[in-house]
Amino acid sequence: MVKFEVHDLNIWFSSIHALKQVNLEIRSNEILSVIGPANSGKTTFLRTLNRLNDLNAAFKMTGAVELERKDIRGIDIEELRRKIGMVFALPLPLPLSIFENVVYGVRMQGERNRKKLEEKTEQALRQAYLWEEVKGRMDESAFKLSGGQQQRLCIARTLAVDPEVILFDEPCSGLDPISTAKVEDAMVKLKEKYTIVLVTNNVKQAARVGDRTAFFLSGELIEIDATDKIFTAPQDKRTDGYIRGRFG
């Protein structure tokens, strides 16, 4: 089943043409890795999906992005962002307890029932592979966690609002290899329930977890295909060059 369909997407920031004529689809319950060098437009693409680019006054787009055949500009923006969770590059815990961090988004939607909040927290933390490490210390400050734990806490916070899609924006760029492995494990497990789009600078990570991989270069989508194919027999010479580390 197709989750997202992107048609003729063009994006400008003032006069900078950040994305050029992008057409692709994102399937339900897959991990789509998006790779490309700096300034390739991959993060811009990701932020288009939950309309976070709209915060920038210079943002302009043509074409259409459809979530389950509905134009995302026609969906209530808070509803859209609740359906499409996002995990940022740097772990961004709030200066609150672990528990309060996880239920933050849930509370914002008006949930007050303590028992429900606790259920949600446990469920989300389990899915993010963090429950075992923090279950006895819910009231401790989130800043006491390690970087990798903080990032998984942010994943749990995103999961707690029951999204359908999760966007990862270079989620492991600040993490050590062991923490990275844990976040990757969580992602692979999560795709059973969610659709995942992963923007990453780490080509090997894309190969490890992605079902399909899209390669962006200077705002253009050069190639999108099954990950095996991209990494063994890419159609485009530029893709080949990038994944072999010849540039980027």
Binding site: N50, L52, L55, E78, E79, R81, R82, G85, M86, F88, L90, L92, Y104, G105, M108, Q109, R157, T158, V161
Partner: peptide, 12 residues
């Protein structure tokens, strides 16, 4: 990023 984090969670 603080604001974006909140908005990405569906905050108004």
């Amino acid at each position: 990023t603080y604001k974006e984090g909140a908005l990405a969670l569906g905050a108004t």
